[in-house]
Design a protein around this nucleic acid. Structure first.
Lengths: 346, 346
DNA sequence: CACTATCATGTAATCGATTACAAGAGGGCA
DNA sequence: TGCCCTCTTGTAATCGATTACATGATAGTG
């Protein structure tokens, strides 16, 4: 029942040429004559030949795949970026290999393995908490494959990255609330060590100070980007004696958690409190109320990161140094005004 | 700057043994003596050796990866399943290779390539619209690698699949609405050719008839599982002279689109109309109103499909025939009651 | 016409790990 | 002591495609 797959030798026999010629006809068509090329292609068709990638990759000393490390595959924010990455990488002839860094099987050891040259020709990292792992990777391995950060990044090491200006996004959100007349503004933060948390919190603080408003530490609620943590922040908000009239959440998901928890307690947004999110994921415009939020061009981020990585892979060491020197690629964002914010009662 | 990676020969030299012994020490530790094993492991440590998978896979005549074909990576329904699949497959030593069947670069030709033995050791298909491609694959290739459908499936060919009882899910939804006293019940359907659409519509019709209620064709709204199509159905609902008082949507996303579009038109759920969804994706319990929906155990579906596939890969042809004969694996569902439905006004 | 450049193709080495087979060492048993 | 069996290790073939190098044919040039 198991018939062995046709090999390049079978094609060569069928076409009456050598394996070298078949290989050339397929990989460098311009290097064989028109007649043999056609004869080879016909033979390929006839035998049903498809290439054995393991053999090709072994000989070419590459892996043919690109690894994407995602903090959480199930999170729609990441899956949209992933989708864009895949759409750019697949046509370039690479496999997209996905690893969820939060999944239990992915110990540091496992992730290190991906960093090793012989697992991937390049990496895209959507997880900025891998500093330790990458440092260890540099010690262990003589040279890491090209890598690019997207969305998140390592604050010190100058790896190339594609991202937005997060503190600017936070400023846009806060300024909008200020313009609506809010003077008591809170913030639901991301996980403490995350770069995004740091940048967005900084932007938020700066904008609050610029508006000559007070920074109240008890209005900066801890969170971790999940809906559950947004709901927790809502409970914290409810328990306050003096409550902010507007809250900027560091992710859309937290904003949903926040709004839904208030709803459970009989309070509606934006009447009870104005809420701004961050990310503008798919559902934000359909949420009830539709969420005012900072739009991140997720598809563009993914595509850009993929294209930069492909350039790095094709380029030489010089190109790589140039890429690191060039600094991060910052894509534009915008504040999308919807229903979840309104002017403060006067 | 580029230092060549250590090969198995380097380890052999460092340990003072042959490459065969190194290979055995790593792949079949019980076949070498304790002392050499330790010596080899020390040499591996010292040289920083990591295996070259292309070489191993070439020799072992396998690819080391499993391909998952997803209709739409950016859809959170699928990404949760994918996440579960990855968590099960990665520890088994396979790469998870993802291909988005809806992405432009994935012509039929490209998908066919994945079906070929030498791209993957096995496939998990979340897309039931691939009938044509698979038929062509069977013609072209002598034997397809083991494959498993998850969620969706091909209605005729008896490929193994892991899924839920979709018509039963639809019945649960309709019965719930009937119990709440609704007598005018509508349904927002998925894309016409989709198996899920067919099954859920059938379940819905049967349950409506069982309740001695009328089937009104103009209350069966076309859709395609997306939020936008749910919003379209809402507009259709609004334009009716006589409107159903309850609507069962074939996906949660369509339910969100439906609810949000009504909200834009000043109508609120469940006061204006009761809505039931299908899937119970992450956000459903936090939507406003929290969505009553049919829960699919997505993580379990993903894990189960992955485990079955791994069994098939390890098994022989006999096991594969047995698996096809065993029929689909049906996982339990339940109706989750939340806020989007309420008793009809009497 | 002789000589060189160009083009098309074939021969065979190569990528790096695995494993069939061979061989040697050591133990057990008559 | 001699024979067989088991255990450990080494030698070398192998997986399938690519490509450096060699070769022969053809065209172009002085």
């Amino acid at each position: 029942m198991i018939k062995p797959l046709p090999r390049i030798r079978d094609v060569a026999t069928a076409a009456g040429v050598s394996t070298a010629t078949v290989s050339r006809a397929l990989s460098h068509p311009e290097r064989v004559s028109k007649e043999t090329r056609e004869r080879v292609l016909a033979a390929v068709e006839k035998t049903g030949y498809t290439i054995n990638y393991a053999a090709r990759n072994l000989r070419r000393r590459r892996t043919g795949s690109i690894v994407v490390l995602v903090p959480n595959l199930a999170n729609p924010f990441f899956s949209a970026i992933l989708s864009a990455i895949a759409s750019e990488i697949a046509p370039a002839g690479y496999n997209v290999l996905i690893a969820d860094t939060a999944q239990p099987p992915h110990s540091e050891q496992r992730i290190l393995e991906y960093l090793n040259n012989n697992r991937a020709d390049g990496l895209i990292l959507l997880d900025g908490t891998l500093k330790g792992v990458i440092a260890r990777g540099q010690e262990t391995s003589s040279s890491l494959p090209p890598l690019i950060f997207a969305c998140e990044w390592l604050s010190e090491d100058g790896y190339p990255s594609v991202r937005i200006d997060n503190s600017q996004g936070a400023r846009l959100a806060i300024r909008h609330l200020v313009e609506l007349g809010h003077t008591k503004i809170g913030h639901v933060m991301g996980p403490p060590e995350n770069v995004l948390t740091v940048e967005r919190r900084r932007g938020a603080r700066d904008a609050i100070l610029e508006a000559d408003l007070e920074i109240r530490e008890d209005w900066f609620f801890p969170g971790d980007f999940t809906m559950a943590s947004g709901a927790g922040a809502a409970r914290a908000w409810l328990s306050l004696k003096e409550r902010p009239t507007a809250v900027f959440c560091s992710s859309d998901e937290m904003a949903f958690g926040f709004i839904s928890e208030l709803h459970r307690n009989g309070l509606e947004v934006p009447d009870a409190v104005s809420v701004v999110g961050f990310d503008d994921i798919e559902i934000s415009k359909r949420f009830v109320p539709a969420l005012t939020t900072v739009h991140q061009p997720r598809a563009r981020i993914g595509r850009k990161a993929a294209r930069l990585l492909l350039d790095l892979i094709d380029g030489d060491d010089e190109d790589r140094l140039a890429a690191r020197a060039a600094g991060p690629e910052i894509l534009p964002i915008e504040l999308v005004l919807r229903e979840s914010t309104k002017a403060v009662r006067t």
